[in-house]
Amino acid sequence: MKARVTVTLKAGILDPQGKAIEGALKSLGVAGVASVRQGKVFDIEVEGVDRAKAEQALTLAAEKLLANMVIENYRVELL
């Protein structure tokens, strides 16, 4: 089963990398970009077919390692 965990910065946390990307997009002349926040995507292959179990495992993975809960939020999706 394919799954995706998306990790994003919490609102209010300064994101210097996002700001730099935002600046670069503006200098490239890409119109209409108001702001950029950078995050991470983890594509994960889960063993077995039990969706509830997979979701549980991925939540554990996100909270124990993939996201730093001090500054980041995460979202688990089973694809």
């Binding site: 946390i13 300064l14 210097p16 990398q17 730099a20 730093n68 001090v70 500054i71």
Partner: peptide, 11 residues
Amino acid sequence: LPGVLMRNARL
């Protein structure tokens, strides 16, 4: 320890 060390403000 609490908190986190982020990218330097000027990258």
